[in-house]
């Protein structure tokens, strides 16, 4: 049942494969892996936050999780423009960072993908598949992200201001109305681009590793040459988590920036504007 690095024939599949059916639900290998990852991530987070103290002791896990959280808040600060907003929305968007990077990094282990095969119901398919290398998974993630952006925007500034983000404050003008409709369609484009980017990067990385491994295995050597590609894929895993988080944060930042622009014009000056005012004696 278990074969590590033993497949000489390349097993490439762009879609998640069915393991078994549970009533009307088809359970695929990426669903199993995604569920496992979510439980593991929740366990790590709960364990780390329970040990969280004002004066840190010797708990390395807590220190690492806190450092990454600090980094994510810093990244979101660029998208929202202020640290208060970044810290407020960090639970929503930080989740994507942690979940994607956790998924992608664990997906590089040899037991994920064509390494360990399942023999449930006579099927010969890999038991695990990275959740982010399944288009269903990434589309679900980006749909939730866009819906959260809409919800948080309405909660933050009210429905009227939220619609003004699309249709400006003069929606009777036919040009503004048409541009508003285009903007609404733009939200669907965002779902597509977010999900396709994440899916293709992870899936192509998995294929690359599988192709190189099988090429070297076929000539009867130990696949050490795959190591640089694994390291490159670790970099890609981080970059994709970063890009997804920053883009989702930027979408919300753009949606709620109009409210500030009218009400707190003084507070939302950028450092460049402050500098320019200082130079002109204002």
């Amino acid at each position: 049942m278990t074969q590590l690095f033993a497949a000489t024939d390349i097993h490439i599949s762009l879609k998640a494969e069915q393991l078994f059916t549970f009533g009307p639900l088809t359970v695929t290998n990426s669903m199993i892996y995604g569920l496992l990852c979510a439980i593991l991530l929740a366990a790590v987070m709960i364990f780390a936050t329970r040990r969280s103290k004002l004066l840190p002791g010797k708990n390395r896990l807590t220190a690492i999780v806190e450092a990454i959280t600090e980094y994510v808040i810093g990244v979101l600060e660029g998208a929202f423009g202020s640290r208060e907003k970044a810290a407020k929305f960090a639970p929503v968007f930080g989740f994507y960072f942690f979940f994607i990077i956790f998924n992608n990094m664990l997906g590089l282990l040899p037991i994920v993908g064509p390494g360990v095969y399942s023999s449930i119901e006579g099927a010969h398919t890999p038991l695990f598949r990275p959740f982010t290398a399944d288009l269903n998974g990434t589309i679900a993630m980006s749909v939730i992200a866009i819906i959260m952006v809409q919800y948080l925007s309405i909660k933050e500034q009210g429905g009227k201001k939220h619609l003004q983000h699309y249709f400006t404050d003069k929606p009777k003008n036919p040009i503004n109305f048409f541009i508003g409709i285009l903007e609404v369609f733009g939200e669907f484009t965002r779902i597509l681009s977010l999900s396709l980017r994440l899916f293709l990067n992870t899936a192509v990385g998995e294929i690359l590793i599988a192709v190189f491994t099988s090429m070297i295995i076929a000539s009867g050597r130990t696949p050490i040459a795959v190591l640089p590609i694994l390291l490159f894929e670790a970099l890609v895993a981080y970059i994709q988590a970063y890009v997804f988080t920053v883009l989702a944060g930027t979408y919300l930042g753009m949606a709620i920036s109009h409210a500030e622009h009218h009400d707190e014009h003084q507070a939302s000056l950028t450092s460049g504007q402050v500098e320019a005012r200082g130079l002109h004696g204002g």
Binding site: V75, G78, A79, S193, L196, R197, L200, N201, V204, I239, Q240, Y242, V243, V246, L247, T250
Partner: peptide, 17 residues
Amino acid sequence: ATSVVIIAAMIEVTALL
């Protein structure tokens, strides 16, 4: 740097498509 990474990711996705 943030915008650079985002633009790079957007270019990359066309090649992957």
